[in-house]
Every structure is written in C-alpha cells, then in structure tokens.
Write a protein that binds this DNA or RNA. Structure first.
Length: 843
RNA sequence: GCCGAAGUGGCGGAAUUGGUAGACGCGCUAGAUUCAGGAUCUAGUGGGCGCUAGCCCGUGGGAGUUCGAGUCUCCCCUUCGGCACCA
C-alpha cells in the first residue's frame, strides 16, 4: 500500500464499483426490518450544489450505511424537485426553454452528488417535471377533487407583481413574496384551493406523536393558530339583520360598548340604505381596498374607522343600543369579520375608543395577585390601589382575568367561569377558530404540472359545478384518469404576462370535453399550473414504486416502506412542505390509499453553513465555498467528515479552510498507520490499554450515530487513531472493526483499506461490530478528592475498591491533609467511581 | 405582545438521572527537521499570582437549593427563529 493517501483514485474507483454491483439497490424483503432514510430532495438550480446540500445528505448517508450494517433493509433514495419558478425565470433570462435548462441542472447536480459516494438507490431517481411523475401529481389533484378537498373559489388572494402569479399564504412572509421579496398585493381572483383547514385539528394534535425539532412543531402550532372562544350574535336595531362575532372573551360581553365590522364585510352593503353617511363609508372602504396587507397590518399605525350613522346594534346581555363602526383593524379573513369591542379589556378597542370618545365600562377587576402580575407585565409605576382605581374608572385597559363586576347576575364570579355561563345566557355557541387558511394551489406560470380540468359551456345544464369566465358559464369537468397526463405544451411563449402562458398554446387547447365530447368553441382547458409544493407533497411515496405506470404507487410497497423513519432537511420548510406533506398523507389515508397518519416519524434540520466570515454565503459577499473544489482538493471523505465534525447537525456554523485540513490530516494518519502496519508482520497482540480503547470507540461511535451526534463520534475515532499511531501494534480484527465503524463517515477510504487488508467482500455490506463491556471497564480508576467542593487531589484505586478504603486513601493524600488539618470533618461523601468530597468546618 | 431555541477559551465546539469545565479539532508559542516556504514531528496553550510542588478567579448577569451547579429553581439581559391590530 502506497504511503501517500490519493483520494482521487480511490474515490472514483469505489463509486464505480458500488454502482456496477448495484449494492445499494433494494427491494421489499419481509425477512428484514426496514428503515427508510430521506433527505429533502434538491431543487436543481443552475448554480449547482451548495455546501449545505452535502451536510444533510452526509448525515442521512451515515445513518443509512449504519442501519444497513446493522441488518436493516434500508431505502435511501434521491430525486429532483424540478418544477418551479427559479428554473422558469432562469430559462427566460437565458432564452432557453425550462425543460432544457432543468435537464442540464439535474445532470450537473447528479454528477456532483455522485462525487460524494452517498449510498443511494439510484434506480429509484424521480423527477417531478417528468410526465411519468406529474401524471400522478395530476392524479392526486383528481382524488382531492373527487373527495371535495380541491375546490375553485373566488377569494382575496396574494398576488406578486414581480413573479406574476398568486401565492399561498405560506409563501408570503411579512407581506412580501417569499422568493423575490416583492410586496404582495391582494387581488380578487377565482382560484383552486386544497381544503387543508379540514385537517386543522388533526394537524395540530398529531404533532405530539412525532419526533420533530421543537421549533418546527412550535412554528406549525403558531401557523395553525387555534383559539377557543364563543360565537355571539348581536341584532341590528330595526332590521332583520344580525352581526355574528367571534370572541375569546365572552366574559367581557357586558363591557361591549360598540361593534366594528371589517370594511369589506358584506353586511355593510346590505345596510346601505339605512346608513346616513354612506358617502363617507364608501370612501373609507375604497381607501382600505387600495392599501396593501403590509400597510393595513402595520401595528404602529393609528386606528382609523368610520361610524355607520343610523345603525345601532343591541348588546344581547345588557339590551343596550351600541354604535357600529367599520375599521381596518378588523380583518375579514379571520373569525366572522366582525367584533364586539370591549375597550376596558382589549388594548386595540381601548385605543379606538379613546380616539372616537366611546364609553369604557370595566366589567372585570383583578384580584391582588392578578393585579401585581399585571403591574409587572405592563411595567406600571403607580401603586396598586391607584392602578385598580384606574381600571375601575376605565382610564386604563386591563386585559387579564379576574372577578366579574357590572355584569348583573354574574358579578362576583371568576371571569374564567363566567365565560361559558354568559355565552349560554345569550344563546351563543362555543367555537374553535383556526388561523390556518386553505392552500391556494393555482399558479399563473408555465413550469408546473397543469391542473387537469376542462371547462365546457355545453355541459352547464347538468353540472353542479359551474364557473363564470368573461361573463359566460362553464361546467367544471375533471379530466378522466385514463387521459392523464395532461402534457405541458411546448409551443408556448413562456414569458409571464399575468396570465398563464398556457393560454397561448394551440396544442394545449385542442381538447374535447371529456363529458359531452364537444370541442372547439366553448370548451377550454384550465390554463393554470399547480404550485410546486403539490409535487413535493407526495414524492416520498413515489420512491417506493417509481416506475409504476398504473398507479402512483403499489399499496403493498408503500405499506412495507412507509412511514419515513428519518427525514433531514432545512428548517425553512416548517410551514410549507412539511405541513403540506402531512396534509397529503392524512387526506390519502381518508381516501383509503394509506394506512398511517404521519409521513415523517423523525425529523432533523441541518443548520446553515456560513461563510468563513460568519455571514451567510452569497455571491455578492464573495464567501461562497464550491463543493466541487473541496472534493477535488481534499476528497469526498474529507468533505463528509469535515461537515459532520464542524458541530451539531442542527447548529449554524461557519466554514473554516484550516478546519478542514485537520480532518484531512486525520484521514492521512489512518492511511499512514495502516500502510506502515502492512509493511511489517501483522502483530498477534495488542496492549490491554489500546484494546480497551478500540472497544470503547466501537461503543461510542455506535451510541453517537444513534443520537446523531456525529461530531463527537469523529472525535472518539481521532482519539483512537492518535493512540494507534503511537503504539503501532494492534491485531487485525481490532483494526477491521474500526474500519467498519469508520465506513459510514469515510466510505471510500474504509472500503479501500478493507480490501488492502485482504478482504474481498464490501465493507458497506458487512456486519456492524459489537463491543465487550467487560473489556471496556477500567481496572484502575482515578478519583478526584474535593475538600469543601474544591478538587485538592486525585487518587488512583483499583476499580471496585470499598468506600472506607477510598476515603482512607483520600484523607491520606498530601494536599488533602493540608486542607483538613486543624479542621473538623463534618461529612465524607463518596460517589462510587466518581468523586470524594470531604466537608470540613473550622474548629 | 405571544410561542420556540440558544448564550462555555482567540475560534468551531466537548461535558447535563447534579460529581475533575474546556474532550477533539483549528489557531497560537517554543523546539526538531528543512537552503527556504509548505508539510511533518515533540512539548505547551482559559485568565491571574507564584511560574516548581501550590493558590485565587472562571460556563451571559443576579439570587437560591445542595457536600457539590455549565447542568436544577426563580428573576433579569442578549442573540436567533415562528406568529402577530387573529378579536
């Protein structure tokens, strides 16, 4: 064996051998336990792989290789999330169609990913932009449609002027487009939605069943936004109308001194002729319409609104007439689009009441503890009696719970208790409200899966689902499953115009109505494509049966492999892909296609790898590390090892070029130690100390892989190799077992050395080593001795020495004697094998 | 404002059923080797005082529980992430 570690020849060689021998290809095997490892499949961008990609892939690969060696039947697939805007925009810029640029990007990504030696089953590669895949994405849409989970509806939707398409709520961050950061406008459009809200409660509850990072679970809980309260009805005086409100504080009903409707509330229109100041009202509504969501929800903005003159509502508890306003701090999209305003106990209402000089009636007064907590929380300087007095007078707003006052028969009750009693009295309903909205899946863009729907004017009379387009009525006719896929046409100008580019395709519009057979005038296809998150919501199912052209997957295959046992990817998908996939699984389960509730049992996020300057890597900063260059210069094994050694998988951590050298040196050291070892006669013995270290390392690496603490596993191997380099004498069986535990981390080097030792099987397919607990135990242990909690000496004793003996030795240690002379020993503590502590007091 | 995560040497980070704080790696210092640079090897490396046995301080800050706290409890500060005029 050459003493020079030449990663280039070794890595290429084994990648080819593994591939030729198909050693990572798997089939369902009932005799073995299965394990499904998965990384979030990459979006093949024109920029090529980022160093963050191999971080999660390496972590997944280590676990996949480990589980395989442990005797599991491991499914470890890879594919391409290939539809979507970046590819389309890039294609437009280059003047080349997206199917060509995407293919190029995929080829480049595949080459790069293969250079790392991941143990993927490449025969299962999927590509979401391939008709053999999106045929089944369309099939998924049809099932959703059939089961009432896909529907078309006119709604206020998020529109991005720069991307020229609508966006899902999940793709709007702080009022801006998640992708291009452009401010999002609200537009009234008729669009396709998936009914995610049907699963709101289950999506929330089942978070308790899965092993996911707490921040992701918290983000999903926030996103679903459950709140419990009551729905109450207020009559509008002298009309047949009433105003429904949702409130979490029905206990404050007696303090509701006015009401507010969202400016776009439909009731405003209906009351038009009773409203005395219609002109003013209309003006305010128009102004609101013009505002963006961002402007409207600006918390620092002063409250505005207009009173509906001539309109009075009746507080159902007090029977009193109260005024009604419209104001843009009430949103049509949450609850009922109307609120009862309780200025004494709600900050927003209080602020509004101050401005419009409305009465503030306190109906809840805090007890002493609640008052103290309130003063602390709000950092009020006044003394508590004064604060209480101010609350009573309605001079300040108290938003906590307390004792009921000014509330007729409920006076004296705890407010928590009064909530439901008051609700009951006025005939209200307990109600649970979610913040989650349905998923808008239509996109006015080209590079996506066409929505398999045809609109037909001729079928209008006997169809229940009717839509209007340009003043004409059309029946909604789903494309029959046998006619899938609806192919993405190629005769298009794919530049975005605000309308789907598919509108202009001749080939796309040559369609017969699947229902009545009519064609030509009055029959047209849906021209929007689906959000790419639809494609990625079920790809983990397709991996189990990627070439099936009769179904998206065979049920027995999905039943064998699913759910995914370990899933690793970025945290940016907290409420996007990860929520949508959970919805898909639940929906498909209810349709009878799946028998499990959650797609991903265990999820881990990889932290971001930052540039050497500690900043996010970006071209403009010039701190981008190119994975190709790293693999070239240091090798795939070094890169894999380094990314795992940098720190905990989930932490953000900066790249370090000198840091990677340290890991490279470690691999060179292994190489050199073995090469020198091979030159001599193979030793038949090992020092007891070194043998113990070998076994300890097997154990430590095993436990650390199980806990996904790869950085400490590597550090344990470094300690062993340092000792091996020192002693140079060790038995072959110990060395071989070390190579096996190293192999998930540095598979090429391990495989090469394994063969150099004379083995002709694959180290990737052998058996994971056991360790000997007896051997691991120390014969002699070092015990620190503390005096009053400070370490003063260390003693060495044989393992298992009796307590009195240990204490005797401890008291006899020189430096201990110094600290206990002339002192009274109060207590002697011995934690077996750990520590001695002598507690002394002055005479 | 609500929810969540995290604060440890010059740097990345180890160590939590409470038990030697700083493993491993980087960097740095000194020495060896070398024409030189790089690479490699050996020793040292939390701060301070003696600089040799030893002592004091030290895990964001402050209290507390304990023989003993990075780890547990309470309060506060900072950073990052999610939600947010959500009724």
């Amino acid at each position: 064996m050459d003493k020079h570690y030449d990663h280039k020849s070794i890595e290429k060689k084994w990648q080819n051998v593994w591939e030729e021998n198909k050693i990572f290809e798997v089939t369902e095997d009932e005799s073995k336990p299965k394990y499904y490892t998965l990384c979030m499949f990459p979006y093949p961008s024109s920029q090529g792989l980022h160093v963050g990609h191999p971080e999660s892939y390496t972590a997944v690969d280590i676990v996949a290789r480990y589980m395989r060696l442990k005797g599991f039947n491991v499914l470890n697939p890879i594919g391409w999330d290939a539809f979507g805007l970046p590819a389309e925009n890039y294609a437009i810029k280059q003047g080349v169609p997206p199917w060509e640029t995407t293919q190029k990007s995929i080829d480049n990504f595949r080459r790069q990913i293969k250079s790392f030696g991941f143990s993927y089953d490449w025969s299962r590669e999927v590509n979401t932009s391939d008709p053999s895949y999106y045929k089944w994405t369309q099939w998924m849409f049809l099932q959703m449609y059939k089961h009432g989970l896909a529907y078309r509806s006119k709604a206020k939707v998020n529109w991005c002027d720069s991307c020229q398409t609508v966006l899902a709520n999940e793709q709007v961050v702080d009022g801006r487009c998640e992708r291009c950061k452009n401010e999002v406008r609200q537009k009234d459009l008729e669009q396709w939605f998936f009914r995610v809200t049907k699963y709101a409660e289950e999506l929330l509850q089942d978070l308790d069943k899965i092993d996911w990072p707490e921040p992701i679970k918290a983000a999903q809980r926030n996103w679903i936004g459950k709140s419990e309260g009551a729905e109450l009805e207020f009559k509008v005086k002298d009309t047949d109308f009433s105003i429904k409100v949702f409130t979490t504080r029905p206990d404050t009903l007696y303090g509701a001194t006015y009401m507010v409707l969202a400016p776009e509330h439909p009731l405003v229109e209906k009351l038009r002729f009773q409203i005395d100041n219609w002109g003013e009202v209309e003006k305010y509504r128009e102004e609101t319409q013009k505002k963006s969501e961002l402007q409207r929800t600006d918390l620092n903005k002063e409250k505005t609104g207009v009173k509906l003159k001539g309109i009075k509502a009746i507080n159902p508890a007090t029977g009193k007439e109260i005024p009604v306003f419209i104001a843009d701090y009430v949103l049509m999209s949450y609850g009922t689009g109307a609120i009862m305003a309780v200025p004494a106990h709600d900050e927003r209402d209080f602020e509004f009441a101050q401005k419009f000089d409305l009465p503030v009636v306190a109906v809840i007064i805090p007890n002493e503890d609640q008052l103290a907590e309130f003063i602390k929380r709000k950092v009020i300087a006044e003394d508590s009696e004064k604060v209480k007095d101010s609350i009573l007078k309605g001079e300040i707003c108290y938003d906590g719970s307390g004792i009921m006052i000014n509330s007729a028969e409920f006076d004296g009750l705890a407010s928590e208790e009064a909530k439901w009693k008051i609700t009951e009295k006025v005939g209200g309903q307990k109600k649970i409200q979610y913040r989650l909205r349905d998923w808008l899946i239509s996109r006015q863009r080209f590079w996506g899966a066409p929505i398999p729907i045809v609109y037909c004017q001729h079928c209008v009379d006997d169809s229940k689902k009717i839509v209007e387009k340009d003043g004409k009525k059309y029946a909604v006719v789903p494309v029959p499953e046998k006619d899938l896929p609806v192919l993405l046409p190629r005769d298009v100008d794919f530049k975005p115009t605000g309308e789907s580019p598919l509108v202009n395709s001749q080939e796309f519009h040559q369609v017969k109505c699947p229902r009545c057979g009519a064609e030509g005038e009055g029959v047209m296809r849906e021209v929007d494509t689906m959000d790419t998150f639809v494609c990625s919501s079920w790809y983990f199912l397709r991996y189990t049966d990627p070439h099936n052209d009769q179904a998206p997957f065979a049920q027995d295959k999905v039943e064998y492999w699913l759910p995914v046992d370990l899933y690793i990817g970025g945290a940016e998908h907290a409420v996007l892909h990860l929520l949508y996939s959970r919805f898909f699984v639940k929906a498909l389960r209810d349709m009878g296609y799946l028998k499990f509730d959650e797609p991903f049992l265990k999820l881990r996020n990889q932290g971001m790898i930052l540039g050497e300057d500690g900043q996010k890597m970006s071209k403009s900063r010039g701190n981008v590390i190119n994975p190709d260059e790293v693999v070239q210069e240091y090798g795939a094994d070094t890169m894999r090892l380094y990314e795992m050694f940098m720190g905990p998988l989930e932490d953000a951590k900066p790249w370090s070029t000198t840091g990677i050298m340290g890991v490279r040196r470690f691999l060179e050291k292994i190489w050199l130690v073995v090469a020198e070892w091979l030159e001599k006669e193979r030793p038949s013995d090992t020092s007891a100390e070194l043998e113990r270290l070998f076994h300890r390392t097997y154990k430590k690496v095993t436990e650390d892989i199980e806990a996904m603490k790869f950085n400490t596993a590597i550090s344990a191997m470094m300690i062993l190799v340092n000792q091996m380099a020192k002693e140079k004498k060790f038995r072959q069986d110990l060395l071989e077992k070390f190579l096996i535990v190293l192999s998930p981390f540095a598979p090429h080097l391990a495989e090469e050395v394994w063969h150099n030792l004379g083995n002709d099987n694959f180290i990737a397919l052998v058996k994971w080593p056991e360790w000997d607990e007896e051997l691991i135990r120390d014969e002699e242990i070092e015990i620190p001795v503390q005096v009053n909690g400070k370490v003063r000496a260390k003693i060495r004793v044989p393992a298992g020495t009796a307590e009195n003996e240990v204490i005797k030795l401890a008291l006899g240690a020189d430096n201990v004697k110094k600290h206990i002379t002339d002192k009274k020993i109060i207590k002697q503590i011995y934690i077996p094998g750990k520590i001695v502590n002598i507690v002394v007091g002055s005479e």
